[in-house]
Amino acid sequence: MKEELFVSGRNIPNIDPVLHIWHWQIPLYLFLGGLAAGLIFFATYFFITGKTDKYNVAVKISPIIAPIAIIIGLLALLLDLKHTQFFWQLYTTIRFESPMSWGAWTLGIVTPLSIIWPLLYLDDIIDYFDGKCKIITKFLKWVDKIIIGKCHIIKWIIKIARKYQKIMAWILLLLSIILGVYTGILLSAFNARPLWNTSILGPLFLVSGVSTGVAVIMWMARDHFEKISFSKIDLMLVAIELFFIIHMFMGYLASSEVQQEAAALFLGGEFTAVFWGFFVGIGLVLPALLELMELFGYKIPIAVPAFLILLGGLVFRFIMVEAGQLTRYLY
């Protein structure tokens, strides 16, 4: 019989049984970051390619969700910091080896730009919500009147932004990809967590984030063409995601013992049902089927697949963060 136990030290509640230090804040932050990345990606991409009119909602309307998501995400992140009084130290240095550092800087640039972008289309957004939702409309009108109307600096910023919108779009496009990848790389940089220790996590999180962005756009889109277009994009993304997931597991199983153990959590272990059922099943395959049915002419309310995709994305991040913290080298 083999026995391993802590004689002393580690068997105290604050240290062990498992150093489980990240809770709901981090997966939520990763989800919202990925969502924002997706929204910004499509807005800027279609703007640059000159398809603003074709993809009206994607370029003009849905980007308003991005800064909201980012700000909520950042608040969650701030809540997760344990030495909060010193958070400003993030911006006293850039450490390229630390994904968290360049993530912080990326967000530092993306956040203001993502606020400016919807301000450029404020009138369209007000029109979009007018008659649908009074509170939002009222709020947006207030923003238009008080903040933009009375604040010269913001007026000036909007003027400049309009002038250089193409450059801004390029910057945002690039940063949105970085942001999307970052949400995955953040995890895969941690050597000690075998589950996270795979480079496929970056592209996987990017695709998953983009697909949640797509879900929001197709949910918000009003005309049939835009809805169907994004539905098709989403189908493609689901296919890519499944492809990555299969590769991820192939990678684990062909790797060291600790990574095989990590994979086992999903292949018979405690996360099997929730991963394959809730994420892959309900969050990927089911919405894909619904979208396919819609393409073949069945009447399906677009909100259903969109919601499922969003839910799947959120569940996926919760699973990855939780399970990752269970996997370890020692003890």
């Binding site: 062990d16 910091l81 344990k82 030495h83 968290m100 941690f190 050597n191 913290q325």
Partner: peptide, 17 residues
Amino acid sequence: HDECIGCGACIQACPYE
């Protein structure tokens, strides 16, 4: 002490806990 923001990245990165 004065530079640590308490993000926990290093804790996640340490294989020795």
